[in-house]
Design a protein around this nucleic acid. Structure first.
Length: 514
RNA sequence: GGCCCCAUAGUCUAGCGGUUAGGACGUCGGCCUCUCACGCCGAAAUCCCGGGUUCAAUUCCCGGUGGGGUCACCA
């Protein structure tokens, strides 16, 4: 049997980080088994804009390197891969279910159902539809329609016995059929409900393994009921733990940014990204710019490999020590048996740690190339040679590519903005301004402005006066870069260049002296 | 609330009857250093509770408690 897995996003316009984890597991499992991974679009409920709402999702997956073998844009033997275009197949299934008595036309009005539901609630018993408006014959239909009623199609669920669902992650899970409601599968307007579409598609696409998040576990009985009623082969199921909020076990949602920002780690990552976005004058609407959405990481300059590696470890592990995996290693070592059952909290700091590690392994030339777009988007004009030197000087300070604009801000442009705390501590320190002025004078008088000679000659100059490097270095740094930290001072001065250095020192002196 | 799932430090996890309970992120302390970052060294911190089973339970069973998912003419 060929393994075929699928991920089925709804075109919402955003690629959710939890969705990526689920997609990744599907992708890895299929690849490992020599199978195929399919992307199917669950757009039964979308009227329009599917194209534009889908584009960011496809883009996100491509950016992450999670490519699908069949689906939108790549096609495949079972096209179309859009639920909205498969209505005829769903209708056939509904007709079959109706014909075999596994489904019925129901003419109940919503209010009437509500009355039953409330009554059950009042009596503290489980609601079970009376099937009072179930049409069992042509006569029933005529009568109900005569009353001006409209129908929906409901599943006629068993009301006794149990279902044992063999789950690859959780083992056998038992459900009582009587607990299951007569779910609607076709709406009054003729459109189809997801569960029906899902079952038909999984069969049509020959899906062998349904790997999805736990939130779908309780949907499985009604889906299996349809699978059996329609005589479809039963796929294997694996219900993954949900990806949870930072510091909690609740399902991660993209609608709760405000709340997540109360988490210090999440806020840190978000604010850092915002700073970068602002340097590029990007809009940072919560809808699109949010660490729960993959697009955030692309815009800020994370590495896809770091994100994928991090996500791999959300709910899965190989052993007690291996944390870093190449794509090939992931494919080779992934297994559903080692998937965790409990929710896994999304930890943005750990993601960042992976990011840093992957960044460290990147050759300089590639770092430079990938930092380029950020510099351009910020509207800075920097030639390749200087950019390369800046990236090299910044070293590990560039944790995400966008950091070139934060950590390296003072390498570009004429003026800098001062870190007020550092300014007070370093420039306004007693005696610092006079020494700064003297050093400025000496600096202005020299020709050579490379880091090595600046370093050597400054030491000599200091020695003449009986000063130590510590007497001037901090004030000079703040005056020339505006920042409290950064690469070696002489490296900074050399990169900034003599003219700009002098200009900045003059400006700082003027500011310090009021 | 019903049904279902789950339970090792703040977080991700290893463990599958006997371990000083291992690793990673984070935290704290130190070293390196012109600063910051990196790096290095070290430290604190975990088996939800109660019953069984067993010579022996973090590990197996049951119960409780806690957390989560789900209960739509959303997907």
């Amino acid at each position: 049997m060929t393994v075929r897995t699928r991920f089925a996003p709804s075109p919402t316009g955003f690629l959710h980080i939890g969705g990526v984890r689920t997609a990744l597991f599907n992708y890895l499992f299929a690849k490992q088994q020599g199978g195929r991974y399919i992307l199917r679009i669950d757009d039964t409920d979308q009227e329009r804009n599917v194209e534009s709402a889908l584009a960011p999702i496809l883009h996100g997956f491509r950016w992450l390197g999670i490519e699908w073998n069949e689906g939108p844009e790549v096609g495949g033997p079972h096209a179309p891969y859009f639920q909205s275009k498969r209505g005829a197949r769903y209708q056939e299934a509904v007709d079959a279910l109706l014909a075999s008595g596994h489904a019925y036309r129901d003419y109940a009005r919503p209010e009437e159902l509500d009355v039953e539901r409330k009554a059950a609630e009042a009596e503290k018993r489980q609601f079970q539809y009376s099937r009072r408006w179930m049409a069992s014959s042509a006569e029933d239909r005529a009568r109900f329609e005569g009353e001006g009623r409209k129908w929906v199609v409901r599943l006629k669920m068993p009301r006794e016995g149990k279902l044992v669902l063999p789950d690859l992650v959780r083992g056998d899970v038992e459900f009582q059929w009587a607990q299951e409601a007569d779910h609607v599968i076709q709406r009054g307007d003729g459109s189809f409900i997801y569960h029906l579409a899902n079952v038909v598609d999984d069969r049509d696409f020959e899906i062998s393994h349904v790997i999805r998040a736990e939130e779908h576990l309780s949907n499985t009985p009604r889906q299996l009921f349809m699978v059996q009623a329609l005589g479809y082969p039963m796929p294997k199921y694996a219900h993954l733990p949900v990806v949870a909020e930072p510091g909690s076990k609740r399902k991660l949602s993209k609608r709760k940014l405000e709340q997540y920002l109360k988490n210090p780690d999440f806020k840190k990552v978000h604010d850092h990204g915002t700073q970068i976005a602002q340097a590029m004058r990007l809009t940072t609407a919560a809808e699109t710019f949010n660490p729960v959405i993959v697009d955030f990481y692309e815009q800020v300059g994370y590495l896809p490999d770091a994100i994928v590696n991090y996500l791999l470890l959300l709910g899965w592990s190989l052993d007690d020590k291996t944390e870093f995996f190449t794509r090939d290693e992931m494919v080779k070592s992934f297994s559903l048996e080692r998937v965790q059952g409990a929710p896994a909290s999304f930890d943005p700091m750990k993601l960042q740690a992976f990011q840093m590690r992957y960044m460290q392994e990147l050759p300089l030339a590639e770092k430079v190339a990938r930092a380029r777009p950020f510099v351009d988007k910020a509207g800075l004009t920097v030639d390749d040679a200087k950019l390369a030197r800046v990236v090299e000087a910044l070293g590990d300070r560039i944790k995400v590519f966008g950091d070139i604009l934060i950590q390296g801000a003072f390498f570009f442009g004429e003026d800098v903005s001062y870190d007020e705390k550092a300014w007070q501590k370093r420039v306004m320190a007693p005696g610092a301004v006079d020494k700064l002025a003297e050093y400025r004078g000496w600096l202005a008088g020299r020709e050579a402005f490379d880091a090595a000679s600046l370093d050597r000659d400054t030491q000599a100059w200091l020695a003449e006066r009986g000063w130590a490097l510590g007497d001037i270095v901090h004030a000079v740094r703040v005056a020339a870069t505006g920042a409290a930290g950064g690469p070696g001072l002489f490296e900074c001065l050399a990169l900034i260049g003599k003219a700009t250095c002098i200009h900045r020192l003059d400006r700082a002196l003027a500011r310090a002296r009021g």
